[in-house]
Nucleic acid binder design. Structure first.
Lengths: 140, 140
DNA sequence: CTACGATCTGGAGCAAGGTCTAGATCAAGT
DNA sequence: ACTTGATCTAGACCTTGCTCCAGATCGTAG
């Protein structure tokens, strides 16, 4: 717990892929695109070593992406964090705007869901009746 | 109400774009891709005339697309409807599978939303304090 | 030493879902 | 007749977000 303390936290790209769900390709791509807060450490041989810090950031990225944030916004956010303290208001704006978009998206999805559920119900009923009813709307 | 009855229901591509939210480009694209149930009527001059039937279908398409259904699935659905009665079970499967995906998506989004909301809260609190606290985690 | 798997770089390729252009035509207004 | 605006077709082009390839290198196991 003394010598390995810092080094054991450093993860290879494959390990990071494993715990973030991103592919190694995507990880390198994200780095090229400037989506990481800082430069990734390297071994003497040139291999990437990610800190748990990097991994936490990536996990946030994954969440934001999963909720539809474009890479461009993610990059912007990374830049703000990279610049250090002083721009918290802008970070807040960015995140809050995204949260509102997510809320809207949830709303929209729930509306879609109910429309679909209704249609599913119509089909299910139709099938349950064994296609007995002759007047069946072909558009549905 | 007698002579104009049928004709007044027929809409130009621009009008349909207006009430579906799709661009005229997208409408032509959808048609090329076989996403419509039937062929669209034409004027003598070659202009498209959409029935209210077509519009209803397009509105459904918009909802399904908005909830993330890929065009390929939409095309499949259109084919099933085009084939007429007899395949309702498959239509049901298709829609129900999509509904389940939408449910999962809503779940995921709500999880993201709460993570984001929490982060927004952290920033808001930080700003409210006027950056008084010296110990501020730069990663957040 | 050798083989093998993981990683490296730079750049090409891909899938989805449209978007836009060019050049022609149509329909209506002045 | 002439202009204007909407539409037509076929096809090129675009953006997003990765994914994959080639060829080289590193590190560990036998």
């Amino acid at each position: 717990m003394t010598t390995t303390e810092a080094a054991s936290q450093l993860l290879s790209i494959g390990e990071v892929a494993g715990r973030t769900g991103l592919s190694v390709h995507a990880l390198r791509f994200y780095e090229r695109e400037g989506l990481l807060v800082g430069p990734v450490q390297r071994t003497s041989g040139g291999g990437r070593r990610y800190t748990s810090f990097d991994v936490d950031w990536l996990l946030i990225c994954v969440k934001l992406r999963a909720s539809g944030m474009p890479l461009a916004d993610l990059k912007h956010f990374a830049e703000l964090v990279r610049q250090g303290p002083g721009n918290e208001a802008e970070r807040l704006r960015l995140l809050d705007a995204h949260r509102q978009r997510v809320d809207a998206q949830i709303q929209a999805l729930e509306e879609c869901r109910s429309v679909i559920a209704w249609k599913v119900g119509v089909y299910a009923e139709h099938l349950a009746r064994g296609k007995a009813g002759g007047l069946w709307d072909p558009t549905a």
